[in-house]
Design a binder for these strands. Structure first.
Ligand code: FES
Ligand code: FES
Lengths: 133, 133
DNA sequence: GTATATTCCTACTAATTCCATGGGAATACG
DNA sequence: CGTATTCCCATGGAATTAGTAGGAATATAC
């Protein structure tokens, strides 16, 4: 239950790798080899992280990726949301017209609480916390 | 991200329904109709809940299902685990020989923490809490 | 300016998991 | 016996996830 897609696991491992480079950049293929991630797959993952503004990239020879901010300023929830979208246990979180209960569905309140518990944890941790734990 | 399978949503709705019956039993088809759940699918779900010991059943005419315990003594984590298995964000939670980091993988500590946050919430809530929220 | 290393883009395939449905056997009641 | 119900097993379709493939664009080095 609640298994995390490989995409997110790979993404975090890649960012951990970058965070340890102390500002210098690393090529996608280099990270892939070091971390045991399928190279072509990682390219796409880093692309998503770039779109979200979490990493910067330079192309051409000697190009590569580096963190857009310091690891201490990068919350884990940003990474998760960049790769998989918002935490949303059930589709009806916003949409109250779905369920038999109609207006005030009891289970929904429970799910909202679960989202809060997960979001709270992910917001409380930074990439630096992960590296130094 | 972290979407909950319909099976679990249906299972919880069914248990909420049973909890409101004040001890008397309800047939699977009856619950399915009232809650808008595919009838044949619900049969299987209730079967799992029975195997886990959360509900009792009687078959034959006038048979049906009822809660095995009072709603206040039924933790939500028991329901989730009965239907989907243990909360396990990544496959390598136990198994330390998976990742490139080898022995002490940093991301793993992060995932263990996430499991703790989710489990903590699910353990803190009972079926009665859901009904009375 | 040519060779090379790299990101970037789009499309495709393969594998896995999720979501049910179907048919009927076993059981209980009256 | 007839009916209502749980129970068991197998199957199929849909959706999501995981990974591949090929090559265009761009920067550097010589
Ligand atoms: S609105 Fe989501 S379960 Fe009722
Ligand atoms: S052991 Fe799970 S990511 Fe390293």
């Amino acid at each position: 239950m609640f298994s995390v897609p490989t995409k997110t696991q790979y993404g975090i491992r890649a960012l951990v790798h970058l965070a340890r480079m102390e500002g210098s950049s690393a090529a996608s293929a280099e990270i892939a080899k070091a971390e045991g991630i399928p190279p072509k797959y990682l390219e796409g993952i880093l692309g998503q992280l770039k779109t979200a503004g979490l990493v910067h990239s330079e192309r051409g020879k000697n190009g590569g990726y580096r963190l857009a901010r310091s690891a201490s300023d990068l919350r884990m929830i940003e990474i998760v949301e960049a790769l998989e979208g918002e935490v949303k246990p059930v589709g009806c979180l916003d949409d109250s017209a779905v369920c038999a209960q109609g207006d005030c569905c009891l289970p929904r309140i429970f799910w909202v609480g679960l989202k809060g518990a997960i979001d709270g944890y992910l917001e409380s941790k930074t990439l630096l916390d992960v590296i130094e734990s």
